[in-house]
Nucleic acid binder design. Structure first.
Length: 477
RNA sequence: GGCGGCAUAGCCAAGUGGUAAGGCGACGGUCUGCAAAACCGUUAUUCUCCGGUUCAAAUCCGGAUGCCGCCUCCA
């Protein structure tokens, strides 16, 4: 099935055709490692994780590159304030990042380059730009890109240079010839890390690393390049200027940008200080709940983060796991085959939704439909044949592999959820089980008054009982 | 000041020309000793407002209002 992708510069969906057959080169801007990652980062990482999983599922040979910016002003500032080296800071937060990605089940990229590993390539690229007259060395030894020399500057973000100059918020730096120019190479100040270069002892500007690394690993033209919306300008605009200026080849075929996570309707960011770290959140919320919340909405829309939203996603996740558990328990050797058409239809719908600009929200809606349909079938006849069980397993395997959810053993997951809030009830498991047994005895003796007393007492402590032919189970609500 | 995006039920949210997905909540029903879960049904004659194009508009065009983002580090 042909995939269509919303391409930022043309502002519409376009059929996706990679540059060379089934091979795809995809680059997503990673994080600057100077602090713990927050759930805004999580969204971007999960969006591109799901996209990469889906592209692979569709049979593409994907090379996914995601960088670490491991030297920059903020890392240096952080190191200085803690009296340590930039290297220690970046190493520490790369480790923390990997721990978080592991928790969130975000798969590692195929290549995870760091700016500091590509200094020679960066210098080479800057030299090339200088040769072509697109860059100039300032008096202090820094090198700037001369934006006015690149005719197409602004084509990604839809801005014109004259308009930008008119804007009051462009910094005027002494060293720049033009306010729009940006640094390719920064001369290092006292106490800052530096590398030798033809211009000065210095370090790379922020934008240049992505051009240098992506070209080195994937070639001058990328099939897909992504990142958060906020990177469109100036970061990605500058990358285009650098790469196309140097190589005279189209830099990116499809630009993909994800929307923000907001808190109380306001963008969450490190600089605003209103952020929630991945670590904090996953200490209380199941990682799959967060993944489900994020994919329940289209990747380009903003998501407002709230307790209620988390709770709703958690309920949905429990609903799916309960179905999986029910399927496991209902599978028997006999029984008629009747569920294969339902499973097949779902897989078709799923593919259709995902191929339409990675419409995860619609795909999740299909998953809800699937859940309702299977539950309905099981209500009318509770056993599932081996063949049907296989069909259902392949449908849910598709969901797991693309979304990275429903990967736990259902019984285990439900048990975990059940235990997660047990401390709030003031009871331990044995006490709960004793009360359930007492209630069971009362019910057997038709002493429903006593049975209901026990049930209501447990309910007041947040424990909900569920009776079924196989016995009584409880859950924490 | 410039540029861009969004506005769909009580809430969250899909849907870019063919007559409003899905979830949460609420209400009614089936099941149950009664519940819970699951299932069935009801819950937007209408998509912020005003014009226009069209046989046909939530979808396209023009205008108004409101919210958000970018233009400075940002996922």
């Amino acid at each position: 099935m042909t995939i269509s992708i919303y391409n930022t510069p043309v502002k519409k969906k376009q059929p996706f055709t990679p540059l060379s057959g089934k091979k795809i080169g995809m680059y997503a801007c990673g994080v600057t490692v100077y602090d713990m990652s927050h759930i805004g980062h999580a969204r971007s990482l999960i969006v591109f994780d799901v996209i990469s999983r889906y592209l692979r599922k569709q049979g593409y040979e994907l090379t996914y590159v995601r960088n670490f910016t491991d030297v920059d002003d903020k890392i240096i500032a952080r190191a200085n304030s803690l009296g340590t080296s930039y290297k220690e800071i970046s190493e520490k937060y790369i480790d923390e990042f990997r721990t978080d990605m592991n928790t969130l089940k975000v798969k590692p990229a195929d290549v995870e380059p760091r700016a500091t590993e590509y200094i020679p390539q960066i210098i080479e690229l800057v030299r090339k730009l200088e040769e072509k007259g697109l860059a100039y060395k300032a008096e202090d030894g820094s090198v700037y890109y001369s934006v006015s020399k690149f005719r197409e500057y602004g084509k990604l973000s839809g801005r014109r240079t004259e308009e930008m100059i008119a804007g009051a918020r462009v910094d005027i730096e002494e060293q720049k010839r033009d306010p729009l120019d940006f640094a390719l190479w920064k001369r290092s100040k006292e106490g800052e890390p530096w590398w030798e270069s033809p211009w000065s002892k210095g370090r790379p500007g922020w934008h240049i690393e992505c051009s240098a690394m992506s070209t080195d690993i994937l070639g001058p033209t990328l099939d897909v390049h992504g990142g958060g919306r906020d990177l469109i300008f100036p970061h990605h605009e500058n990358e285009i200027a650098q790469s196309e200026g140097a190589y005279n080849a189209p830099f990116v075929r499809y630009w993909v940008h994800n929307g923000f996570v907001t808190i109380n309707g306001e963008k969450m960011s490190k600089s605003l200080g209103n952020f929630l770290t991945i670590r904090e959140l996953t200490s209380e919320v199941h990682p799959e709940t967060l993944r489900l919340l994020l994919i329940s909405q289209h990747y380009r829309s903003p998501i407002n983060f709230s307790k209620e939203a988390i709770q709703t996603s958690n309920q949905a996740l429990v609903r799916f796991y309960e179905l999986l558990d029910r399927i496991n328990r209902a599978t028997t050797a006999g029984g008629a085959d009747r569920l294969k058409p339902i499973a097949d239809a779902f897989m078709g719908n799923f593919e259709e939704a995902m191929s339409d600009d990675f419409n995860t929200a619609k795909a999740v809606a299909h998953l809800h439909d699937l859940t309702t349909e299977i539950n309905r079938e099981l209500d009318s006849s509770p056993s599932i044949s081996e063949d049907d069980s296989r069909s259902l397993r392949s449908a849910f395997k598709l969901v797991s592999e693309v979304f990275g959810i429903l990967e736990d053993e259902p019984a285990q997951f439900l048990d975990l959820i059940k235990r997660s809030g047990i401390s709030e009830t003031g009871l331990d498991e044995k006490e709960i089980q004793d009360l359930i047994d007492q209630r069971g005895a009362a019910r057997k003796a038709k002493d429903f008054k006593r049975a209901d007393e026990i049930r209501n007492m447990l309910l007041s402590k947040g424990i909900q009982l569920k009776d079924s032919p196989e016995g009584t189970v409880w859950e924490k609500i």
